[in-house]
């Protein structure tokens, strides 16, 4: 049987297979762009990006509110998620004994597996009513979405940060202790700088997850197409815009959703690119 597949043909087959990821990527990008880009040119880039009027039935396609919505919600989730994740990572990696870590870290990573729809549901059932009752507004809001997304990205940032903190050589800590630093000073001045690039990588992953998240966001933002004036306003994100209307859109309307997808892809690429550059520069400096 072995002879049937000669070494050469196996190598050829594997070479072809190895390009599957690239092929998949190209296929996705090409099809989204083919479907979306002509629309953008037809409507005009500036109208599409900077008009605030989204009334597909009337032929008005402005996604500016959605762009703002996505950015604001992502920013909010970072404000909620990063401090919690970083404090958690520092405490767990520096102060908690190894045996406890062996239980806590897998638990946190297991939580990363909870489906996003479940987070969204919790947002609707628990968080939104709280916000409505105590802070006012509709409840389903930027604030609710930021908190839910912040919690969703916690496990990602937490677990990668713990890994990079753990990877800091013990000698760094001993060096600082030897100079008479307290534990906190040691962490602050020796450990954190050394783990910085890993932590940033974790934050970028979290960022990507937050801006790309769809179902949880649909459930908790309220999806109003408006420019928000406070965190208690309802907004609609780019992802939500696609998912909400895809079910029934046809013709120009459907194309506009693919165009929204193109913009989303571009935003994510720009974010990832700048973040990668930022990491490289930091690592380079060291």
């Amino acid at each position: 049987m072995m002879k049937l597949f000669s070494e050469k043909s196996i190598k050829k087959a594997l070479t072809v297979i190895a390009f599957s990821a690239i092929a998949a990527l190209l296929l996705i990008v090409v099809f989204i762009i083919l479907e979306g880009l002509p629309f953008i040119f037809k409507v005009g880039i500036s109208d599409f990006l900077f008009s605030s009027e989204w009334e597909p039935q009337m032929g008005r396609f402005g996604i500016f509110p959605m762009i703002i919505g996505s950015l604001v919600v992502t920013l909010g989730s970072m404000i909620v998620g990063i401090p919690l994740a970083l404090s958690g990572a520092i405490f767990l990696s520096e102060f908690v004994p190894r045996w406890a870590m062996r239980i806590i870290k897998p638990t946190i990573e297991l939580l990363a597996g909870i489906p996003s729809v479940v987070y969204g549901f919790i947002g609707v059932m628990v968080l939104a009513p709280l916000i409505r009752d105590y802070l006012g507004g509709p409840g389903l809001s930027i604030l609710a979405a930021s908190i839910i997304l912040g919690i969703m990205i916690l496990p990602t940032i937490l677990s990668i940060s713990i890994d990079s903190l753990k990877a800091v050589p013990q000698s760094y800590r001993e060096g600082a202790f030897a100079l008479g630093a307290t534990h906190w000073q040691t962490i602050h001045m020796a450990v954190l700088p050394a783990a910085k690039s890993g932590i940033i990588a974790g934050i970028i992953l979290g960022l990507g997850r937050a801006i790309g998240e769809t179902m949880a966001v649909i459930m908790v933002t309220g999806n109003a197409v408006i420019l928000p004036k406070s965190p208690l306003y309802s907004v609609r994100t780019l992802t939500a815009n696609i998912a909400l209307e895809m079910g029934y859109a046809t013709g120009m309307h459907r194309q506009s959703l693919f165009a929204t997808g193109v913009i989303l892809l571009i935003i994510i690429m720009v974010l990832n690119y700048t973040a990668t550059i930022a990491i490289r520069r930091r690592v380079g400096k060291k």
Binding site: L25, G208, T239, I242, A243, F258, L264
Partner: peptide, 8 residues
């Protein structure tokens, strides 16, 4: 790539 793009 976000999952909604995969969906699209």
């Amino acid at each position: 790539i976000p999952s909604i793009i995969f969906g699209l």
